[in-house]
Amino acid sequence: MPSLPQTAGADPAAAAAAARPPRRKELSNLQFALVVTVPVLLFLLVVVAYPLGYALYLSFHEIRFFGGYSAEFVGLANYKAALADPKFWRSLGLSLRFTVETVVLTIGIGLALALVLRDLKPRWRWLRAMIILPWAVSPYGAGIFFAYFGRGQTGIGTALISAFGFDGTLNLITQAAVIEYLALGAAWNMAPLVAFFLLANMLTTPKRLYDLAKIDRMRSYETFWHVTLPPLRFTLFVFTCISTVLALKTFDYIFTETQGGPGNSSTVLTYLLYQISFVNLDLGYGAAMSFFLLALILGTTGLIYALWGRREERK
């Protein structure tokens, strides 16, 4: 009777389960996360999904305000128009240029700053706290500041050349290099935060590891690569993503600093969108173009993750 032991074995367990009050089940991590975030998710649904949906609606219509509000369904016409618009491509190029430069400068300056702050003599350690200040300036404020700073009459350029005995003015905000100047200001704004996080990472590296590198007769770049850098890589990845997104969607900083100028030499995608939607009031076209920006942001971060982030995931 092979089935007997099985039933005999199952019975007491079943009886015990019936006798005991049902054991309260622990929430899994995912369940807990859902419970905690439901209110936020609902809120996000309202504040993100609604405008997003409305923008999607707009992008398929031609909106007119003059002669009475009207919305005419035009299908993909707005999207096609954007792809055929040389201004769009030009602004896209400027956005990418601004973003790449900003990210490189932010990460580079942040890393350099962190190295300097790490090696400060104890007497100068208080600088570590001071250096965060630029980050406390809003992009709006930074834009105004850098506008004055770069302008011919008031700027640092003029001050510098007059210090060397030259007469005249030096304008840093020029057609050719305005994007670089903007990127520098954006990096000034963001790099201190990067430096702060990198410094915190650096201070966890055991000093003896540098001794090991010396015993191995590593050159200084090898020491940097094998000892200093590894604990920073995850932070660098995170900040590369963050500053990429921030740079792609920068508007207020450019608005206060150059208004897309001189001429249209700093009309990045966000600024072009502003002009189309809020100056020209061509809402449908602007909405369609904004979806290209959204795709660009998602695409670049996805690319960074695929190329870099997967390798940096904590093991």
């Binding site: 590891l209 001794d211 090991l212 007769r217 590894p230």
Partner: peptide, 17 residues
Amino acid sequence: SPHERNIAMVFQSSLLY
């Protein structure tokens, strides 16, 4: 510097990268 001394060392805390 240690570079010029040609020494191999095991640290007390068995340091590795």
